[in-house]
Amino acid sequence: MITRLLLAMPFLTVAVLLLLALGALLFKRNLIKMLMGLSLMESAVNLFLVAIGYRQDGVAPIFTNVPQTLMVLPTVQALTLTAIVIGVATSAMMLSFAMVIYKKYGTVDVRNIRKLNG
């Protein structure tokens, strides 16, 4: 029972992170906080990817001198690395957008970033 609960922990964390991220994306007025929500969402998905690759008692998937046959999945870890790189690029770009918008509009309140509408 305890083991199952522990194994479910990463997925519960993913759910909590996702809820926090959605909350920040939908209800925060500050653009920077929205972007933090986006970053949280990225972390949630990355954690999810790594968690689905976990095998109980598995070792790192390095084939030299391997002590046992059970390993965690390497594919999802590769996916996560790629996703992290993409996430960094996204965050950097979006934050620079926020900076330019603050310079030009004088605000980071998303409710005021609406020159384009209708």
Binding site: L38, V100, I101, K104, Y105, K115, L116
Partner: peptide, 17 residues
């Protein structure tokens, strides 16, 4: 004047989500 950045921000935000 920031408008293009606003357009880009909206696109990037929705695309990323």
């Amino acid at each position: 004047k920031g408008e293009a950045v606003e357009g880009g921000l909206k696109y990037a935000l929705l695309s990323t989500v």
